[in-house]
Structures are given as structure tokens and as C-alpha cells.
Computed example of a mutant assay.
Amino acid sequence: MSTPSLSELIEIGVVQDAQGLQGQIKVRPHSSDPVALLSSKAIWLSLIPRRQEGVATSLEQASLTLYKVKQAKMHSGTVLVTLDGVTDRDEAEALKGARILVGRDVFPKTEGDSYYWVDLIGCETINLQGEKLGEVIDIADNGAHGIISIGDAQTKTVKQLVPFVKEVLQSVDLPNKLITLDWQPDW
């Protein structure tokens, strides 16, 4: 299998620490329901190289390593993962801070009108009056609800932060990459 680029992968968690003596890793998932992490048979780990001579390295310089997942299970809000080839605590600790990535095809199929937040990134947004608001750049969870960052995808400039709640979100048309919001451009 050839190594994909970082743009082809989706980050689903971060290695928080080693667990026990047998090489398990403790993963902090980015989702409250880490179904993709729990069902993955293989994951990519990305370790960003350390700074050298005061120069920060880019994400494109990060190394990607493919690991087969032997076991993954929930444990106190984290996911304990056993990787093929990681057999002791020292090897597991060396992975601390690594980003866990998978291909989009690993995610289970959605049913009905449900979708993954990652699929909304890049969608154009309009309001009920048909005015363009911008493109979805990011979606984050603030605890109470999600927040959609809308702006210019080219420059990554955020123009508005919009609550991701049913009162605002009117429709999502994934095939046409279009989201309709009950929102005004000057709010």
C-alpha cells in the first residue's frame, strides 16, 4: 500500500500516553462517539518531526506510518488500542503525541439524513434569502453544540462563526455541497 498524503486522511484522535506494560496506547478521540477508530483494522500514525535549529517543520514533512490494529476498546473516555508491532511500554511511549489518521472510506455508512462533520467542510453556505455566506472551513464542538466556521477557503479567513443547531441549520445537500442556514451575513 502506498503512503497517502495528509490531505487524503482524516485525523480522528491523538495518542495520549502508553497504557500498561504490553504496548497498548491510550488515544484521546476527537469524537464523543469514536466509531471509526473502534472499527478500523489499520490506522496511520503521524509524528511531526521535532524542530531542528529553531525552524518549525510543516505538516507535509510529518512521517506517516501504517499500523494494523489488533484491538481497540473504550476505557474511561479514551480508547485503548493494541497495535501490531508495538509490544512494550517504551515503544508505546515513543508514539505519545502522534496524530491518528484514517481514510474517509473507513467511516461506517450513514443512514437517512445523517452525515459526518468532516463531509460538511468545503460546502457552500447560503441563507434563506439565497445570499452566499461563504464556505465551511471548519466545525468545532464547544460542549453545548457545534460551531461552523464560515469564510474564504482559499485564505482560511473566518468571516463568521455560526451555531450548529437545528434552529439555524435548515438543510444539508451533500451531493451538491450546499448548506442552507437561517442566518444573515451581517450577524
Rank of each mutant, 00 (worst) to 15 (best):
Gln184Pro: 02
Trp187Lys: 15
Pro185Val: 01
Thr65Glu: 03
Cys123Thr: 03
Lys156His: 04
Ala92Gln: 10
Leu174Tyr: 05
Ile100His: 05
Asn142Ile: 09
Asp84Cys: 12
Val102Asp: 04
Asn142Gly: 06
Leu174Trp: 04
Gly122Glu: 02
Val118Pro: 01
Glu60His: 11
Glu135Thr: 14
Ile148Glu: 01
Ile121Thr: 01
Asp105Ala: 09
Glu167Asp: 14
Val158Arg: 10
Gly97Asn: 14
Trp187Phe: 05
Phe164Tyr: 09
Glu124Asn: 04
Thr87Gly: 13
Leu169Phe: 10
Pro108Met: 14
Gly146Gln: 13
Tyr115Pro: 06
Lys132Leu: 11
Arg51Ile: 03
Leu178Phe: 12
Gly130Trp: 07
Glu91Thr: 12
Ser149Phe: 04
Val118His: 14
Lys166Gly: 11
Thr180Tyr: 05
Asp141Ile: 00
Ala153Trp: 00
Glu167Asn: 13
Leu101Asn: 04
Val162Tyr: 01
Arg89Phe: 03
Ser114Trp: 01
Ala98Gln: 03
Ile121Glu: 02
Pro108Gln: 15
Thr180Leu: 10
Thr155Cys: 05
Gly151Met: 06
Leu169Pro: 10
Gly97Met: 14
Leu178Thr: 13
Val136Asn: 05
Gly103Met: 12
Ser76Trp: 06
Lys177Arg: 15
Glu53Asp: 10
Gln129Asp: 13
Gly151Arg: 12
Leu181Ile: 04
Gln52Leu: 10
Ile121Lys: 07
Pro175Ser: 14
Val69Pro: 03
Val165Phe: 02
Lys96Arg: 15
Leu80Lys: 13
Ile150Trp: 00
Asp105Pro: 01
Asp88Trp: 07
Ser171Arg: 02
Asp113His: 08
Val102Lys: 01
Asp186Glu: 09
Asp141Ser: 08
Leu66His: 06
Ala153Asp: 03
Ile147Val: 11
Gly112Ala: 11
Val79Glu: 02
Gly77Asp: 00
Thr180Ile: 12
Gly77Met: 06
Ala92Glu: 09
Thr110Leu: 04
Arg51Asn: 09
Ser76Met: 14
Leu101Val: 01
Lys68Asp: 09
Glu53Arg: 11
Ala144Leu: 14
Val79Lys: 10
Val158Gln: 05
